[in-house]
């Protein structure tokens, strides 16, 4: 386990910034100066973890350390960063664009489907195309995140079966990907 290098940090922040607005800076300042939160990489996975915990984890052998803190995602072999569903709790409170899904659209989304226009209860205004969005249920529960397929203006003209947002991750993965979600 080690801190991230500069290019790695940049890649990670670029990905997080696709979903989060200005509030992303709270991630760094969270916990205050005494016990701030830091980013650590173990294997290819990046964890958002309390610094005191990260320091304690140095006493665990690298091979034996499976996970600690909140897993944000992992670096692919090509050097890109892929967010995991476990990062939802980190990015959702700071989300820039949101889509609320009606109860009839919750299950299709949680089974891995994209968000259709017919299922959208409401959405953030002025959302451009191909921008990260966080998907919520009508009672403000976080369901997952995705990428907008159309801008809000274009999406208004779309027919009800048209895709509004492409799914990236949903909380159904906790069950569907149970075997592989936390393995390295």
């Amino acid at each position: 386990m080690r801190p991230l290098t500069e290019p790695e940090t940049k890649t990670l922040f670029e990905k997080l910034a696709a979903y989060c607005g200005k509030g992303i800076q709270d991630l760094i300042t969270a916990g205050g100066a005494e016990d701030r939160h830091v980013f650590r990489i173990q294997g290819s996975r990046v964890y958002y973890v309390r610094e005191s915990l990260a320091n304690l984890a140095t006493s665990v052998k690298r091979d034996n350390l499976l996970s600690l803190g909140t897993c944000l995602g992992k670096f692919t072999k090509t050097g890109k960063f892929r967010l995991h569903i476990t990062a939802l709790s980190v990015i959702a409170p700071h989300a820039r664009y949101k889509i609320w899904v009606k109860p009839n659209g919750e299950m299709p989304f949680l089974y891995g489907g994209n968000v259709l226009k017919a299922h959208v209860g409401r959405w953030s205004e002025d959302c451009p195309e191909h921008q990260g969005v966080v998907v919520l249920s009508m009672n403000d529960n976080y369901l997952g995140f995705g990428v907008s397929a159309r801008s809000t203006a274009e999406a208004r003209k779309l027919d009800p079966t048209g895709v509004v947002a492409f799914r990236q991750a949903d909380i159904g993965e906790y069950l569907r990907e149970e075997d592989t979600l936390f393995t390295t």
Partner: peptide, 20 residues
Amino acid sequence: VFVDDAQSLMAIMSVVNAEK
């Protein structure tokens, strides 16, 4: 070269945020 202090992290983040 690791980036671990809050200041440099903030600097990187502000650059990324501005671009985004």
